[in-house]
Amino acid sequence: MTISPTAPEVTTAPLLSAQDLHVTFPGRHGGPRARAVDGVDLDIRPGEIVALVGESGCGKTTLARCLLGLVEPTSGRVTFDGRPLEYSGRPLKAYRKRVQLVLQDPSGSLNPRHTVYDAVAEGLRIHGYGGDERTAVAGALSRAGLRPPERFFLRYPHELSGGQRQRVVIAGALVLEPELLVADEPVASLDASVRGEILALLLRLRTELGLSALVVTHDLGLAWNIADRVAVMYLGRIVETGAVEQVLTAPRHPYTQALLSVLPEAPGTPVVLTGEPPDPSRVPSGCRFHARCQILASGEAERTGVADACRNQDLKVLSGGGASQVACHWAVAEVPERGAGL
């Protein structure tokens, strides 16, 4: 199912912005610290849907948790609506009302002992909502596509289908009238027949409510169907970003090319990456992807004259804006007029 999102104007000031963000965790048994997020700039504008794409362990979930205020950055900062995010007290509580999380597993995120009504109303009660709770819950369920909402009030999660449970989770986020949703693999646990319905719902909410969204996923097909812009993450850093059509139809970074090559509809032979999966406690020198890079392994980087740079010269952090950018010595050497992306 192909859905055509309507992108916002690129001149709009960011709603959420990460600037030179780093998150490290203590190493095992006193070893080197794990650099889960290792220098990230990322902007999300009002009404924009950004897909954050990468394999497991690349740091995308840690980045999302940091943007939500669940993890405090080691360095760098997050700003929302022009103001730096505070990680304690009332400001953080107020922020979490404006930025809501949608988890990938509705069965795990819904309390089996709570009715649908209580699950959706929980956020209102936490934040001391002073209006008509029943009306707010009914409105959120209706916007999430569960109609008539009263029919679902007294149901329990086990009485619902997977798609209905995910809609309840989305309703629980919508009831607080947020400005931004962070959706972590929002359709990963759903049947293929339901995935398109949930993606269409997220797009409709963007159109009707002006919601922004960060969609965290390893699924490039999902990014194609829902996002305005895509950011490809590898070993703690964004290595390619730009409009979704541009990045996914003409990928410039070898890692993006490898991810796309294994899609069922991709032409040619899938790229099999060599080497070990990335270890955030041992980030290699030079390009962090060079140990697994098919361009370097094939000799193409040597022929282009960038092999030494790939192994030894670090790349700058990509800016958080909407311009097409790539952090790759070979890609810039191949298309020098686009070198400003570094």
Rank of each mutant, 00 (worst) to 15 (best):
I3Q: 03
L21C: 15
G31N: 12
V40K: 08
P46D: 07
A51Q: 09
G54D: 05
G54Q: 08
K60V: 13
K60A: 15
L63Q: 12
V71D: 07
G76Y: 13
G76A: 14
R77Q: 14
R77D: 15
V78E: 08
V78Q: 05
R90T: 03
P91M: 04
S107Q: 04
S109Q: 07
S109F: 01
L124Y: 01
I126S: 06
L141K: 01
S142N: 09
G145A: 08
H158M: 04
A171Y: 05
G172S: 14
L190C: 03
D191Y: 03
I198K: 00
E208W: 10
S212Q: 04
S212W: 06
D219R: 03
G221L: 02
I226P: 00
A227R: 02
V232L: 14
M233P: 15
G236K: 10
P254Y: 05
S261V: 14
S261F: 09
V262M: 08
T274F: 13
P284A: 11
F289Y: 15
C293W: 12
I295Q: 10
A297K: 14
R303D: 08
T304A: 08
A309K: 07
C310W: 04
L315I: 02
V317C: 07
G320D: 13
A327N: 14
V332E: 01
E334D: 14
E334N: 07
P336N: 05
G339E: 09
L342T: 07
